[in-house]
């Protein structure tokens, strides 16, 4: 892998926090969470590396949604 830019690193960091948080969810729903997180990140896979503002925006959105979903009262996702 070529050296990652700061922005790419940030995306991976967000992804890592999301994946780590799966463990706090009920065991039978963990697979759903994994699939959902992958899907959400996958949706934006095609964004060109240089569109900084788009990516920055998505990272912010991602953090907000992460905070929402990491609430322990949310137990499952379709």
């Amino acid at each position: 892998m070529a050296r990652l830019s700061g922005l790419q690193r940030e995306v991976l960091k967000l992804y890592r926090t999301c994946i780590r948080t799966i463990r706090t969810k009920p065991e039978e729903t963990q697979l759903h969470w994994r699939a959902y997180i992958r899907e959400e990140f996958g949706k934006n896979k095609a964004i060109p590396k240089k569109s900084f503002s788009v990516i920055e925006h998505l990272i912010r959105v991602g953090h907000r949604r992460f905070e929402m979903y990491s609430n322990p009262q949310i137990k499952d996702i379709h």
Binding site: M1, L4, Q8, L12, Y15, R16, I19, R34, R38, F41
Partner: peptide, 8 residues
Amino acid sequence: SLDTVEAL
């Protein structure tokens, strides 16, 4: 890269 994160 996402899979790698998952593996780690």
